[in-house]
Design a binder for these strands. Structure first.
Lengths: 343, 343
DNA sequence: TGGTCAGCCGGAACCGGTTCCAGACTCCAC
DNA sequence: GTGGAGTCTGGAACCGGTTCCGGCTGACCA
């Protein structure tokens, strides 16, 4: 493997000049630069990022911690992040993190504590103070996308508002018996995505004078944030023909798909007897006619990278942190899965 | 950030001894090792992998190139790979690669040509000779999972046999008018996954004396390997009530789901008038009652990592390359989407 | 008693870049 | 002519580890 010393020798200059010529930092005569570049190309020299990062402290590599790659939302985010990082010449090191477990500690205490990444993007995880501290001690910026990281910049949609919007859509259609398929843990973790969506739903219902009789349990069922999760939760919820809701607000489109499947199996005609709305704007939503609150995870990933690069001092220092503070975009898209309440 | 020199000073030994004590290579007295480890723990020393890899040439990092992360198969593979690498103390650098495009050259010529990864796992891509050469020149092993890489070890199911198995299942049920929803490009790239499945289907049909009248086009329709892809391909295929097939072999479960959706929309009763079989063993297959040829992508990812680690000389050198040569496991799982042909 | 050798440790070189610093040279202003 | 700023270059230090090599010790054996 050719090293920079070989390039320097071939071009008849010192290592220092060769380095300057190739990196573009410092004074180098145009003609010298040309000669060095030609020499590098001739022997196929490619700089070792390890050697460079050893002295500069920059690795040109960002870590992404993400709980799933196979849920639609997370997959899209990951693709968006990857595309943006690649374009900026950065590598992406993936840490696929089960929400809780021994591996999680290992990732933070071993993998992320080393100096292998310049920054961390945490997608859909709620980081503990300790975890944030591990990374902050290394003076590496963190960006939270979706989840939360105490003290770190956060990019997210307004989940509370999105849930309110979905609920209002059903209310406007005349529904009064509306149930919510909440993400698992929504009741426990108030600040989580699931918790916010649940809270947005409950508040909107109660503002409409539709506070649940018989407790919250009667209209909120928790489900895994997946299609099978939605399926079994919906089966449970719709199993009793007597007091069946006329509309369902699912915490994600995948949950909504599961609910649609369950309703189908139970022989409940849709949307005449049951309206369903989700959140996400899933790739399949159009095909299944699902009304949903769209969000744009690929774009969100891109924005997260933009923010990270900004914190790393790439690009124009003067620019403000992009999209800081303001919640990310959402949009209500009405399709055939929701209709006026039956009389 | 504490360096190893700080640890050495605190423990009252030389850098060399500190390094030996912490890495476990070479002679170090038990008592000395204990002292060094205590010193390291006390000041929170964590070795910089960059510095180590600079001299050892090993990065403890493997690159994964993968065309999608958001198709079920690929997501599962990625999770399997990540889990296994993490357990072995390796990092995973992700290169999400559009099947073709300028980014692809950039990944190979810039990112992978550097010395940042010890090995490459190529999932579901067909690498060109040139691309393999770029990596081989750096003496880094490549493992192909699913796709192909000329000259590199390959892990894959026998796609031809899997397709034959699926087709035979339909034949045994008495179907004679069977169509195949092939993956895009199946006709062009014979060695690709889609091509092999298509070939397995055609050969089995022809061996059963069911060579297509009116050309292959009459019974093979190409579709994107996704749910919407299967949907539109199936709409096209099932649109003419006259000569409609009684059974469909879809190149993947996601395609099959799309076809099921299309049949539903067209009002074709399933499975009485239309049997559908897929390939994959998708997470949702059970819920939708889809008969399929299961494969185990998570496990496949694990096996790929095992092979990579073997090539890198980790673990027992003596062991043979795991699962080399033999095709990976598949299994026919019969559910409600396939039934006897209507008379 | 002397020699061999395993165990243990430290000095120094080294990996492959980047950057500091000093020196040389040019150009221009005073 | 002198001074200074600006441009260009090379030597050497440096980043943070690993490893080679040689020296020292003590046990064991002839």
């Amino acid at each position: 493997m050719p090293a920079i010393a070989d390039v320097a020798r071939l071009a008849g200059v010192s290592k220092a000049t060769a380095s300057r010529a190739l990196s573009g930092r410092g004074y180098v005569a145009a003609e010298t630069r040309r000669r060095v570049q030609a020499a590098a190309a001739q022997i196929g020299f490619i700089a070792s990022p390890d050697a460079a990062s050893l002295v500069t402290g920059r690795t040109k590599n960002v870590g992404v911690v993400i709980p799933f790659v196979n849920r639609w939302f997370f997959g899209e985010v990951l693709e968006g992040i990857e595309r943006a990082l690649l374009a900026a010449g950065y590598d992406l090191t993936l840490y696929n993190l089960a929400p809780v477990g021994p591996e999680r500690d290992r990732v933070f205490d071993f993998f992320l504590a080393r100096k292998r990444v310049d920054a961390v993007v945490a997608v859909g995880v709620d980081l503990t103070d300790r975890e944030v501290a591990v990374i902050a001690r290394r003076e590496k910026p963190i960006i939270a996308l979706g989840g939360t990281a105490p003290g770190a910049p956060r990019l997210a949609i307004d989940d509370h508002a999105a849930a309110a919007l979905a609920t209002e859509h059903l209310l406007r259609l005349g529904h009064t018996r509306i149930a919510h398929l909440a993400g698992a843990g929504a009741g426990a973790a108030a600040r989580s995505v699931q918790g916010q969506r649940r809270a947005g739903f409950l508040q909107t219902m109660s503002e409409a004078g539709l506070a649940p009789r018989g407790g919250v349990e009667s209209v909120v069922v928790e489900s895994e944030m997946s299609l099978p999760g939605g399926y079994s939760a919906a089966l449970q919820l719709l199993g009793h023909p007597g007091d069946r809701p006329t509309a369902l607000f699912a915490a994600s489109d995948e949950v909504a798909f599961g609910a649609m499947r369950a309703a189908e199996r139970l022989g409940i005609p849709m949307p005449s007897d049951l309206s369903i709305i989700g959140i996400d704007g899933h790739e399949y939503a159009e095909l299944f006619g699902l009304t949903t609150i769209e969000q744009y995870p690929g774009e969100q990933g891109r924005l997260a990278v933009e923010a990270v690069l900004h914190l790393l001092g790439e690009g124009d220092e003067a620019d403000p942190l992009p999209a800081s503070g303001a919640p990310l975009a959402t949009r209500l898209v009405v399709r055939s899965s929701t209709t006026a309440a039956p009389r």
